[in-house]
Amino acid sequence: MNKKHLAAYAVVALAFGASGAYVGMQTKEQAPPLTATQPPGVTGPVDELFKQSMPDAKGVATPLAQYKGKAMLVNFWAPWCGPCVQEMPELSALASGEEGKKLQVIGIGIDSPTNIAEFSNKYKISYPVLVAGMSGTELSRQFGNSGGGLPYTVLIGADGQVKKTYLGRLKFDELRKDLASL
Rank of each mutant, 00 (worst) to 15 (best):
S140C: 04
L94S: 12
L167R: 11
K51E: 13
G148Y: 06
A13P: 08
M88W: 03
P83D: 09
S92L: 12
P89Q: 12
G20N: 12
L170S: 12
P83A: 07
K70T: 11
K28W: 11
G147A: 10
Y22G: 07
N75G: 12
S112V: 04
K68Y: 08
D178T: 08
G100A: 09
A65R: 09
Q161E: 13
G149Y: 04
A93T: 15
D178I: 13
V46T: 01
N2I: 06
G24I: 03
E99I: 05
G136F: 02
V74K: 04
L14P: 10
Q104G: 00
I110D: 01
A71Q: 09
M88H: 08
I116E: 11
I125G: 07
A180D: 14
K58A: 14
W80H: 01
L49D: 11
K68C: 05
Y22E: 08
E48V: 10
G109W: 02
S120C: 12
G82I: 14
D56C: 10
S140T: 05
S120R: 14
V85T: 11
V60W: 02
G20T: 03
S140R: 02
A18P: 09
D111H: 06
P128C: 07
G24L: 06
A71T: 00
A13M: 14
Q66I: 02
R176N: 09
G109V: 01
K163Y: 02
V162D: 05
A31T: 12
P45D: 06
V129H: 00
A61G: 04
R169P: 00
A132W: 01
I110R: 00
T43D: 09
V154M: 03
Y67M: 10
L170M: 06
W80E: 06
A180F: 11
T37C: 08
E90M: 13
K4Q: 13
I156A: 01
I156R: 03
K4T: 13
F119V: 03
V105Y: 09
S120D: 10
G144P: 00
Q38W: 03
E138Y: 00
Q30V: 11
G109I: 04
N2D: 15
L14D: 11
F119H: 09
K163P: 10
S19V: 14
M72Y: 03
V46I: 09
E118A: 15
K177R: 14
A31E: 13
N145S: 07
M54W: 08
E98Y: 01
G147I: 01
T43N: 12
